[in-house]
């Protein structure tokens, strides 16, 4: 098959695989009450899954981030979280700072 067609099919397949989870979630939500235990459980699992993804991204990153040292990534993360707390939960400052700080530290 033409490589161009394979790429288009890959985009279609990826989109279907992704939308299925979202749509299934929307269907399940019709039957789930906010006050139910099931909802609370889903809430905890959703936060944990996100946290697990983030922990993995920092400790075992994929892509270019893997070229930086773990200790540097941790220093950047901790510093940025401290800025976030000190600036009363401003998100713009720590995010901009993170990119600059990581670039500086990796080039030292």
């Amino acid at each position: 098959m033409d490589i161009n067609n394979i790429m288009i099919l890959a985009i279609v397949v990826t989109s279907l695989a992704t939308f299925s989870s979202r749509f299934l979630g929307a269907l399940t939500s019709e039957k789930v009450s906010v006050k139910s235990k099931v909802f609370q459980w889903f809430n905890c699992v959703a936060y944990s899954i996100l946290a697990a993804l983030l922990g993995r991204m920092i400790i075992f990153p994929a892509g270019v981030l893997a070229d930086s040292d773990l200790i540097i990534r941790l220093i950047v993360l901790i510093t940025c979280v401290a800025i976030f707390i000190l600036t009363k939960k401003n998100l713009v400052l720590p995010t901009i700072f993170s990119a600059i700080f990581l670039s500086i530290l990796t080039n030292l």
């Binding site: 695989a17 992704t18 989870s21 979630g25 789930v32 009450s33 959703a46 899954i49 996100l50």
Partner: peptide, 18 residues
């Protein structure tokens, strides 16, 4: 992709009822 993005299922169920 399905495995990686399945997290969207519990995320949807913990938001849409609200």
């Amino acid at each position: 992709v399905w495995l990686v993005n399945f997290r969207l299922y519990p995320m949807t169920v913990s938001l849409f009822p609200l």
